[in-house]
Design a protein around this nucleic acid. Structure first.
Lengths: 218, 218, 218, 218
DNA sequence: TATGAATGAGAGTTCATTCAT
DNA sequence: CATGAATGAACTCTCATTCAT
């Protein structure tokens, strides 16, 4: 419960190398973000109160507003951090692969691992869009861009595989979207069922289904 | 914007055959549900106010409460109606097919058609789970059961196809979940992109991907 | 439970002798008053709704407004009727007595009897003053006048007794007020304790205490 | 209008001796209670709005809810404070007396003094029971217990006097109830008449009537 | 005349946000 | 900087009253 913003989150990195003032400031931001993650995860956006988040982070209510413009900005920041963490985790995983098909398998594995490790964050991620009325600042665009980066990574891999004749012709992006859909729905189902299994166990199922389809081998 | 609750909604049926009193009552319920659909679609559950819904339906605020216990009940009713409409539409479509594979294609087609016709409802459907803190009444269980009926229909078709050797072995339910995921994500993408194309155009893509996979024919 | 507005209520009398239209009208008024008594008794002024009263009287909501200007007027009418019933009951009782002391005993007995028979009405009577924000019409003055009539009856009896040397000198009205206070508080206590005893059992206690005081005979 | 919650209220005591934080908090509570007393006294429970009370206390609406759970709790607190103030005032008065009869006179005097000083509170006190639908918390029981303490004090005094042969035999509690009834009704009358006289002037009348009765000395 | 569906003003309550300390 | 008490706009929901039928 305490370590929800772990290595997958980017904000933490390099904090140590900054001047003290700056470092303290970032640390407090992080404290609040971590508390926010826990509270938002438990209650959802609307039912979480700033007061509760501040209390969970062991700060005063007003302090939150020194680091985040408003509730929405805090939420958006949190979501952005998380998604960035996921995307970078996936990108790192893909970078190590030698061919597009293997890379796709790595992406699936990395994606599933990330959710395995961030189960609590799941509800936030799955409901980003409607929980609030579109953050006013540019934050929303940033988040969308991050998501796109993820889809585009897959799209590029699909395209590369298509060039090598490993994936049949067709709209590469559509393939990518479909693949993310499979993962997403399995994740959703996994979260709901609440049984002990790990999401990572489904990696092969996902990759096989995506690559070979459901058709029986004749 | 006006025809959101169309033939896909079950409540509308047979209204004409009832005694006048009852018919009027149902009509007003429907007016309010339609207005609610529009407003909830635009603003989400929390940001929609009863006042605004009433106004949109051209009724007074209090009138809404003559037909629905509270905001939550109105929302739940709306969601249930819609999902029931979808599930029944899909079940009808599947019933007409002669073999499981064709049935699956019919299901995909019916599903996509439904979303094509209910674009505005999309956001509600996609975010049913977290918008509110679980309706107290049994409504929620009903909604979950409806969703399950849909997944189970597909699961049964997959299983039937497996028995005939048309789909390879494996957890039938997992196949079903994956298929819904593909559709869902394409729908999501379609909604976002906002281009003129119809979701129904993706039917073959979905079915082919699901059945044959993305692998290039050797 | 059904016969709360019984012989103690004056409205009922002579209904039979009127032209039909007028008689029907009075009958409906009475129906509503009886229903109102039950509902107000059970719920108090604020928590009783016109809808519920109408329903209890087996009329439509709107019908109530054909007979009473508003909720307040209905309540005031009811209270007035009841108090008038009590006052007249008491006056009749006093009229039969041959001397002031006996008359006072009769008054006490009649008063207690009335409450015994109208237990349900008690809460209304005891809280007339503050349950609503002073009826605008002259109704309030009428009610106050009725109450005064009751106090003045006792005052006159006290004064008569004083003239005959049966009651010591002093402000007759103050004696009267004190006597009503004794009765009222015993009634209050009786209602609260809810034991089977009858209020009428206290008649002698009240009269003796009032007349002879609590002092032990030397 | 300003000094309604005076020395008779217990909450006020010792405020000065507390740490500043706590003291401020109590002070604000008191501000609100005082405003509530005025507004409730003028309008009764239902017609008084939190908004109006807050405004009268020169606070924002929400502030009231920082100090009281809800309207009911505010009202109950106020009533309890007041009644506790009265009961303790009376108990102190009784403690100083040397014999039961004198103690009863002291009780009557203290009781009348309290009402003289808290005229505005009168309507609240007189209508505690029905104004609201029974506070949920244990508050109501506390209030009832306070009232009982008051009646029981008198009952004990009556009993003591009976043992000494100063009051004749009989249900001591009934005597006590009767005595409170006399005071209560005189108070009621005094409030209504609105003449300049003081309630305390009636102390002897009450005590004499209760002890010696109204009967003329033969 | 009787009805009861519709109304909307107004209530209690919450909570994101501010700001004096 | 950090605080958390104070704020008040905005919400949901109720119900006395009206009025078309």
């Amino acid at each position: 419960m305490t370590q929800l913003l772990n290595q997958d989150s980017v904000s933490t990195s390099n904090v140590a190398a900054l001047p003290r003032r700056e470092r303290d400031r970032l640390q407090r931001r992080l404290d609040i973000l971590q508390a926010a993650e826990i509270v938002f995860s438990r209650k959802g956006y609307h039912d979480a109160s700033i007061e509760e988040i501040a209390r969970a982070a062991e700060y005063g209510t007003g302090t939150v507003y020194l680091y985040f413009k408003d509730k929405e900005a805090l939420y958006a920041e949190l979501v952005e951090d998380k998604i960035r963490g996921m995307v970078e985790h996936i990108e790192r995983a893909a970078a190590g692969a030698s061919d597009p098909i293997e890379a796709l398998r790595c992406v699936v594995r990395a994606r599933m691992e990330f959710f395995d490790r961030n189960r609590e964050f799941f509800r936030i991620y799955m409901n980003v869009r409607t929980e609030m009325g579109r953050p006013k600042g540019g934050k929303w665009e940033q988040i969308v861009r991050l998501r796109d980066r993820y889809v585009e990574l897959i799209t590029r891999l699909v395209r590369a595989a298509q060039r090598r004749g490993l994936i049949r012709k067709g709209d590469a992006r559509q393939f990518a979207v479909a693949l993310t859909g499979i993962m997403r729905q399995l994740t959703r189902d996994w979260l709901r069922s609440n049984n002990g299994r790990s999401l990572t166990d489904s990696v092969d199922f996902v990759a096989d289904l995506f690559l070979s389809g459901a058709l029986a081998k004749r």
